[in-house]
Design a protein around this nucleic acid. Sequence first.
DNA 1: TTGATTTCCTACCATAAAGGTAGTAAAATA
DNA 2: TATTTTACTACCTTTATGGTAGGAAATCAA
Lengths: 134, 134
Amino acid sequence: MRITTKGRYGLVIMLYLANHYKNDEYITLKEISESENISLKYLEKIMISLNKSDFLKSLRGSDGGYKLAYEPKNYTIKEILNVSEGNLDIVTCLNSEHECPKKDNCSSIKLWKGLNDVIDDYLSNKTLADFMEE
Amino acid sequence: MRITTKGRYGLVIMLYLANHYKNDEYITLKEISESENISLKYLEKIMISLNKSDFLKSLRGSDGGYKLAYEPKNYTIKEILNVSEGNLDIVTCLNSEHECPKKDNCSSIKLWKGLNDVIDDYLSNKTLADFMEE
DNA sequence: TTGATTTCCTACCATAAAGGTAGTAAAATA
DNA sequence: TATTTTACTACCTTTATGGTAGGAAATCAA
């Protein structure tokens, strides 16, 4: 049961951009890569998913880079993880694409739904702003 | 972010035994396998971890099988998942064996600790008895 | 004491996911 | 035109998942 580097690094990127939001400058992945000690090429790959959603602005060329499209408080951790990590369902049985044929008389599904709810509640109610440097 | 079949099936086994606890009979994996439609061989493998902990009694031979060593209410979901699934840390950074060198000035670690706490709280406060058939 | 049953134990294996690397095209700027 | 930086595609190694196979050892009933 764990979040992989995709989700973690995705959040690292978003937090970095949030911490530089007030300057309104484009930040290069090179800068993030060096500051956070994560391979540039891997960050690029993760960025593809983040950039497909509408929450970033990007610019190519020198002085280019990325910046947040909105204020940090507008990004919930849940939506960021959903984009960078992918599916957050704790068990496949809860996923509509892999629905379990026995789900209606399964005694453990209540457990998984309950767990899913507490996780969902936490991730939906925290935003980037809650974890920025002061 | 998900629990694998090891954890899920481990819980299925434990819930099955809990639901038959009052009869005080040994239950065979064959019965559970047929009832829950899970390969006997795979259940055997999962059973090895469950049986290494002290919460089951086992007996070989005909009329043998497994039963709970204690009442269902004495088993928290957390300890069952810990045994059948293995490590439940949501990110590797929280695991003492893979401690992150940057953890002291990492802004996302607060997020993971918070998430870990709500999950831990939920799993520690639910027992097998909470999910038994009435 | 033999046969059936069931746990116990070890080894193996195919597929998918994780965690990247490499190379290049396209855009933007100086 | 050269440099910088994103955008895109392809590839690769290692680990984890989700099993299967075969047999040994214990237990009980006939």
